[in-house]
């Protein structure tokens, strides 16, 4: 028999390091005479797309063409220290540092533009990729022309930015306090089909509502959501380190299985944007939130389908059959008794 069920998983994730731990990033930008821009960032590109996001930020701030931005990444001889790529902080902290580097140069750009256009500098704005005079139609300078003029006139063309994601520590005994500057939010829905004869769980659909604050690049966001969901799916259904007496017995890819293309369900990426004023353009961290809700959503969907709970986190066919009572339920997924685990005293 095959039965279907729906499950939801939600989560909150404190972004960055929190607890007053160092959580900073720095960045440099330089405008070349032809209107191309170079970014130096210590941020590591792991595949998440931070180089692309930083380029988009500079393009937006200067009105430069995205293709004209080059990023030099993570080299202790060349780039400033941007902190690690972890804790879903890249866009949030390292993006803010690049934004700060752009702001460092923006006054130079604007004051020169105001001289060239003959308008007060407070009337100059960078909008839709143009440096324009507010309320004066036709007074427009392209960024590349302005870049050239900066060099002709010997203006400062190198900007530096530092962003400190400052947080407070919490009380040592109660952990009360403002531990994080930003929180990320996500909820996922999963529909499963459980074969009660074989214990096999098939994911029929997955919808991921992820609050990213602002999607700077929606395709990259979707990539994180889809990839994150599949990592979560792998954890819930097939990936398990089999460790006995300290020996990791399946430490190779023929016995430690991760999802293939055949395991992937339809995924609907539902991008939610609740702006965070502390992030660049309102953006929040989202790489980890994309993977966290998947396993609980799957486990809840299985429970919805079979009215029994796989309380060990791996819903392998064997473990599903055990909770269905079809095979002997002893073993490591058999649960500890409550009294095995006393709560520490208050």
């Amino acid at each position: 028999m095959k039965v279907r069920g729906i499950g939801i998983g939600s989560m909150v994730y404190g972004v960055g390091y929190g607890f007053s731990r160092p959580d900073f990033a720095s960045a440099e930008v330089e405008i070349a005479p032809d209107g191309t821009v170079t970014i130096w960032s210590g941020a590591s590109e792991l595949g998440q797309g931070i180089r692309t996001v930083l380029s988009q930020i500079v393009a937006q701030e200067f009105g430069a063409a995205y293709e004209d931005i080059r990023v030099i990444s993570a080299d202790t001889d060349k780039t400033p220290d941007s902190g690690p790529v972890s804790a879903s902080r890249s866009t949030y902290v390292q993006g803010n540092a690049v934004l700060a580097a752009c702001k460092d140069l923006k006054q130079e750009l604007i004051s020169l533009a105001s001289e060239l256009m003959g308008v007060e500098s407070n009337l100059v704005e960078i909008q839709n990729g143009q440096i324009a005079a507010k309320d004066k139609i036709g007074k427009i300078i392209s960024f590349s022309k302005l870049a050239s003029e900066m060099h002709v006139q010997g203006r400062r063309t190198h900007g530096f930015g530092w962003h400190n994601n400052r947080t407070l520590d919490v009380d040592k005994n109660t952990s009360q306090g403002d531990a994080y500057s930003s929180y990320a939010w996500a909820s996922q829905l999963v529909e499963v089909e459980v074969d009660t004869q074989t214990g096999r769980v098939k994911i029929l659909r997955l919808a991921s509502a992820t609050d990213v604050g602002k999607a700077i690049n929606p395709q990259l966001i979707e990539g994180q959501i889809e990839g994150g969901a599949v990592q979560g799916l792998g954890f819930a259904l097939m990936e398990e380190m089999q460790v006995e007496q300290g020996v990791f017995n399946n430490a190779n890819l023929s016995t430690y299985l991760i999802p293939t293309a055949a395991d992937v369900p339809p995924i609907d990426s539902l991008i939610v944007e609740v702006s965070d004023p502390s992030g660049p353009y309102g953006a929040k961290g989202m790489a980890e939130p994309a993977t966290i809700p998947t396993t609980p959503a799957i486990l809840n969907a299985i429970a919805d389908a079979i009215s029994k709970r796989v309380r060990y986190s791996l819903a392998s066919p064997e473990n599903v059959l055990k909770v269905l009572g079809k095979i002997d339920g002893s073993g490591k997924e058999g649960f500890l008794l409550l009294e095995d685990i006393p709560y520490p005293v208050a």
Partner: peptide, 12 residues
């Protein structure tokens, strides 16, 4: 080449 924030540009 102006692409506003929120555009799915091709990864660099």
């Amino acid at each position: 080449g102006y692409v506003p924030i929120g555009s799915s540009v091709i990864r660099e």
